[in-house]
């Protein structure tokens, strides 16, 4: 459980720079690779790496998943490796969400004087992709509904600080309804929640509260 090969100085530094790049360019897909860690089943190395980089005893975290046993195991893994404290959703600074989005209204959004006290959610989904430019893309209408059977997919169009015009993204493992909840919770900027989406292949992107989702389509 105890990760001895995670370099708290240099691995953290690299992951932080990748995250910073992601937050500065919302929707840009980045990769966190090369980590020599073995997180418990259900979470990717990227999710673990992000939290290793940001958690310590001065902040609290929560794990949001329907599987209570899995949740306990994951929580223990982060307590041992970061010294951070387990909290409930209402008071956590960082939330690792697996499988489903937690109830966003329970999570800290900061105050108008101190909006930075809003939480950060690391949400593990199936797959995140930047669509290829339209001129290289095959006819997307044919693919509709054909994707991986049973897995929800959405396409997002983003705009806001960090984005030159618009940015497009496709996600597997996220429902349209969940995207609408995210739009809802971040509509009172500067109050809000910042998101990092991670996928099974250790790809990630950030969705800070300043980003506006202008279009969401089921793909």
């Amino acid at each position: 459980m105890r990760e001895t090969k995670f370099d708290t100085i240099f691995d953290s530094q690299k992951i932080f720079r990748t995250l910073l790049d992601a937050f500065a360019h919302p929707g840009k897909v980045v990769k966190i690779s090369g980590l020599r860690i073995g997180p418990p089943s259900g979470i990717s190395k990227a999710s673990a790496g992000v939290l290793f980089t940001l958690l310590d005893l001065e902040v609290g975290f929560a794990v949001s998943t329907c599987d209570k046993k899995q949740s306990e195991k994951i929580a223990e893994y982060f307590i041992i490796n970061t010294g951070s404290r387990l909290k409930n959703l209402e008071s956590a600074d960082f939330i690792l969400a697996l499988g489903e989005l937690p109830e966003l209204e329970r999570i800290k959004k900061g105050s108008l004087e101190y909006p930075d006290e809003g939480a950060t959610i690391v949400y593990a989904v199936e797959e995140v992709n930047e669509p290829r430019p339209f001129y290289l893309r095959r006819d997307t209408t044919c693919q509709k509904g054909r994707g991986l059977s049973g897995i929800d997919s959405v396409r997002l169009t983003l705009t806001g600080p960090g984005i030159n015009g618009e940015r497009h993204l496709s996600l597997k493992g996220l429902k349209k309804q969940e995207v609408i909840k995210i739009m809802e919770v971040n509509k009172e900027f500067p109050l809000g929640i910042d998101f990092v989406f991670t996928d099974r292949k250790d790809k990630c992107f950030a969705l800070p509260r300043s980003t506006r989702i202008v279009e969401v389509k089921e793909a």
Binding site: S12, F23, T53, L54, E58, P115, F189, P190, D194, R209
Partner: peptide, 21 residues
Amino acid sequence: DEYAKREIRRKVLKAVSIPGY
């Protein structure tokens, strides 16, 4: 030390998320 860096990193990400704040 790494604790100080971690705090600054967390704050930098919040700063980027709330431009100008």
